[in-house]
């Protein structure tokens, strides 16, 4: 591990060579919009909101999966990036059926927040009105695929943290969908432990708890950091026990 110095938006910053540009930026109070990234989960570089410019390359790089290099000059907030981020949010809005007014996470939704943050005022592409299902067979939770942005946070948290691997992606392109257990109803899933982690990490109202009223559900993702840190530091091991 080495400490490198680089420039982000004209500011000299330092970071470790095994950290992402996103992590380094956030340590220095520089906010980069993200959706598929979540602290504590692996990164997939899928939503493309965190794209940044790096001097000397015409290409754009996802901050969540890009490692720093000594002397790198990074811009996170150019006119081009702002425009592209807005289009990404427009794409996500057009791809689902997001009726915010009747959604239980209304005002607590990451997609909504990103729309405000990117200054989205109207969607210039036509809405696609897909026909998607809602599955309410689970005793505690509901998945409404109309509100899914395919960030795969649920897939990763269930596989990487809970270890159940209930969720997967089926299909290709615009017909991709999140499915449970080889496309069985969630309620019939033999792998789901009903831990609720996927519901908490879902950025939208796609995964929700039963019995929540409109605009009432607030998602908390902090637990993930605690679990992951605790595991890394083996905090759950009782050092005083003399079992061995």
């Amino acid at each position: 591990m080495a400490i490198l110095t680089l420039t982000i938006n004209g500011e000299h910053v330092s970071g470790k060579d095994d950290e992402s540009l996103l992590a380094i930026a956030s340590q220095h109070g520089i906010r980069i919009p993200t959706l598929c990234h979540l602290d504590g989960l692996s990164d997939v570089g899928a939503c493309r909101l965190c794209l940044v410019e790096i001097e000397g390359s015409p290409k754009l790089f996802p901050a969540c999966t890009t490692r720093p290099q000594e002397g790198m000059v990074v811009s996170t907030d150019t006119e081009r990036l702002r425009r592209y981020r807005r289009i990404i949010i427009e794409f996500l809005a057009s791809e689902g059926n997001h009726q915010c007014a009747v959604c239980v996470v209304n005002n607590h939704c990451e997609l909504q927040n990103l729309a405000y943050e990117t200054g989205l005022t109207h969607v210039s592409v036509p809405y696609l009105y897909p026909k998607k299902d809602l599955d309410a067979t689970h005793k505690d939770f509901i998945i409404d695929r109309n509100r899914c942005v395919l960030c795969t946070r649920c897939v990763r948290v269930c596989h990487e943290v809970e270890g159940a691997h209930t969720w997967d992606i089926a299909g290709r392109g615009i017909s991709c969908e999140i499915i449970s257990d080889l496309n069985q109803p969630w309620g019939a899933s033999g792998s789901c432990t009903s831990c609720g982690k996927c519901v908490l990490v879902c950025p939208t109202g796609a995964l929700i708890e039963k019995g929540e009223a409109v605009a009432e559900m607030e998602k908390k993702t902090d637990f993930l950091r605690y679990i992951v840190t605790a595991r890394q530091k083996r905090e759950w091991v009782n050092v005083d026990s003399d079992e061995e």
């Binding site: 570089g45 493309r48 289009i87 696609l128 392109g173």
Partner: peptide, 13 residues
């Protein structure tokens, strides 16, 4: 493949 937003939704538009 549907993994990233620009290609999944952009190609359709």
């Amino acid at each position: 493949c549907g993994k990233c937003v620009p290609c999944r939704v952009g190609t359709v538009h």
